[in-house]
Design a protein around this nucleic acid. Structure first.
Lengths: 228, 228
DNA sequence: CGATCACTTGATAATCCTCAATCCTTGTGG
DNA sequence: CCACAAGGATTGAGGATTATCAAGTGATCG
């Protein structure tokens, strides 16, 4: 287990960062804790386990997943550097309702429960930021819910690719397992592969090895809205 | 427009109620406002419109919906007496992301934005309750998301009936349009009807006129978990 | 350089949606 | 109180979408 200096606070950009509203004292308290290294594929926490703190992605990429029928994996969201994971269960005081798994080698900072709760109570602005994050998660989940219910897989994959493009912006291309992409839009690997292949033939995307590069975003937008 | 004395605070039971943590002063401020009557089918607010306050269901039943592809309607949740609707958009300060429509004749109390925000800032316990509601909504949406992604319609309808049974407990039977039931589980009217009909033949439910009564909950539980 | 993991493709089948016609229920106006 | 209109419920046939299963191929890593 490699230990790295925490850089979470720096990763989160400007006023977007949850940490931007902390006092120097509070910031220091958070930064005392060290990041831990997680290998690709390694779980950060598991559905139904008891929360120990909030995780802040310092580097890497993490999928937040929920187990569905047939043991299939629904990906709720993908957390990037600067993102937080696991705070909802801490606030509610119940077990995790989802798992978090590194999908790239990652370094992730743990803010222990006690410290997080302290911050929540001490710092109203911080609390409000968290509440806004919660609201965003609701919007996100409810939009996704509606999409999965009524939008065909083709439209959902087009949409997912556009969203992923932002998450992977610095890399210029999307490196996600076909299986994870499928989990993200609620379908199976094979269906995802077939549709990606269609997109390639339609010159909407390019594929290098395994990673996807969008070359015609407008085309994808059109497909993703095709059924509105 | 009939005006009725507000009874929201009473409808919400015991410590479950959001109002239970208000001071007498605050409670009075809330109760000054009168309920408004909404006929079955009448909208309370519409997706994309600007919030004016929080709605508290005093009597009746309200569906919270989101428009999906093909103009199909996804029902996010059904609000009962004592439930609140529309607070998320107020907190985030954006437009409604969903519509609310009365599915029974209802009387609904509007707590104006200014008063709600005042309560939020004055009363930490109240704020915390709201935050817990937000967390519950996330859990709810994410579970539903996972179900719709991977659980067959049959399982989802079984599950929905079990959940609705609680919402309709005092009535002893479920009175919901087949179309609304379909919207709740993310399918179309006809499919919902066929599955309900199966359940009837399998002696899991009974149907009087249009309303559904569960006679074998365990059977439905089994079906709803069939694909876990 | 063999083994493992990811990707791909095809054939087949299950699930679910669409369209269309009909029946039943409820409410309304005469 | 009845007839009729309107909306909800139902059923059938057909087709589109998507999942499953099986059998590979290509990439990556110790």
């Amino acid at each position: 287990m490699k230990l790295v200096q925490p850089t979470c606070a720096l990763k989160a950009k400007g006023s977007q960062s949850l940490f931007s509203c902390l006092t120097p004292d509070q910031l220091e308290k958070v930064q005392q804790h060290t990041c831990q290294f997680y290998k690709k594929g390694q779980p950060i926490f598991q559905e139904e386990s008891v929360p120990t703190g909030v995780f802040c992605i310092s580097d890497g990429l993490v999928k937040v997943t929920k187990l569905g029928s047939n043991g299939k994996e629904q990906i709720l969201r993908i957390a990037k550097p600067g993102d937080f994971v696991g705070y909802k269960s801490l606030i509610k005081g119940n077990r995790y309702r989802a798992s978090a798994i590194a999908i790239e080698d990652s370094s992730i900072c743990l803010i222990p429960k006690a410290i997080f709760m302290e911050l929540l109570h001490e710092n109203v602005a911080f609390y409000q930021q968290i509440v806004h994050l919660l609201c965003d998660e609701i919007d996100n989940a409810e939009s996704k819910l509606t999409d999965i219910a009524y939008k065909p897989v083709r439209g959902r994959i087009a949409e997912a690719l556009l969203l992923l493009d932002k998450a992977f912006e610095d890399k210029e291309q999307i490196t996600l397992t076909r299986e994870d992409l499928a989990g993200l839009v609620g379908t199976v690997k094979e269906t995802a592969i077939r549709i990606i292949s269609e997109f390639k033939h339609e010159k909407l995307i390019e594929i290098n090895k395994r990673s996807i590069k969008i070359i015609n975003p407008d085309g994808l937008v059109k497909i993703s809205h095709l059924y509105d």
